[in-house]
């Protein structure tokens, strides 16, 4: 389980990007990380994947500092983001061949199941793939390696409904089959309502709402979109 304790992160111009005293992510299930642009979602995901170091505090996985122990944890924590590109001039086959050859615990069963369910083109140049195909291909590069934490940084936002449905269903079943944590940064309310089990609402680097989605909806007796508006208004009033 990933835990965040006393986290602060400052930007290059010393602006406060994140200020989170405590945060826990639960598995199995999909946690939706919600917030406007600039709320700090991508920054939080980068810290959780060990790519960035916080100014203060700790982001840990099973008690280990994710940044310091990046080399040993990177096989367990995968980040899928448009900021992490594939080689556009090479093909899906090239990328898959490379990953399979260097991975020690590649699961052929998961690979075959994904090839069947995700309909990824087997030998197509990356720059010729559609957005949906690219996201599905990235899942194909990730899931057979059996990560325990999968972080998606707004990769599903621009996809059509069918693509999103396939991806979320796959992530959901993977999470329940393996006990993995899935954290998806998204603003698609429809996806959150349908697939998320927990939500974290970020605003200006702070967590203004966190909890199981069903409990939150029952407490407020309204839909999730309205809940977000309530909390954002509450924050403004404060």
């Amino acid at each position: 389980m990933i835990e965040v304790n006393n986290l602060t992160l400052f930007g290059k111009s010393h602006n406060l990007r994140l200020d989170i005293p405590a945060l826990k992510f639960y598995s199995p299930g999909i946690t939706a990380l919600v917030g406007h642009n600039g709320a700090g979602k991508s920054s939080l995901l980068r810290l959780m994947s060990g790519l960035e170091k916080s100014n203060t505090g700790l982001v840990s996985y099973l008690g280990k500092d994710i940044f310091k122990d990046f080399e040993s944890l990177k096989e367990k924590i995968h980040l899928i983001s448009w900021n992490l590109e594939l080689y556009q001039g090479l093909t899906t086959k090239d990328h898959l061949k490379l990953i399979k050859s260097v991975s020690k615990n590649w699961s052929v069963e998961i690979e075959n199941a994904l090839l069947k369910d995700l309909s990824v083109p087997p030998d197509k140049r990356i720059d010729k793939l559609s957005r949906g195909e690219q996201v599905r291909f990235r899942l194909l590069l990730s899931l057979p390696r059996k990560p325990m934490v999968i972080l998606l940084d707004e990769v599903t936002n621009e996809l059509d409904t069918d693509s999103r449905r396939i991806i979320f269903k796959k992530l959901d079943s993977y999470s329940y089959d393996t006990g993995a944590q899935v954290v998806v940064a998204t603003n698609m309310i429809e996806d959150i309502e349908r697939y998320a089990t927990d939500i974290i609402l970020l605003k200006k680097g702070k967590v203004i709402l966190q909890g199981a989605l069903d409990n939150i909806k029952e407490e407020h007796k309204t839909n999730f979109e309205e809940i977000i508006r309530i909390y954002e208004r509450k924050d403004l009033q404060l």
Binding site: K74, E75, H78, L79, N83, E85, L86, Q88, V102
Partner: peptide, 11 residues
């Protein structure tokens, strides 16, 4: 171009 991150992410 952020392509090196693919190599960084390899095991």
């Amino acid at each position: 171009e952020r392509t090196w991150s693919f190599i960084e992410s390899l095991p």
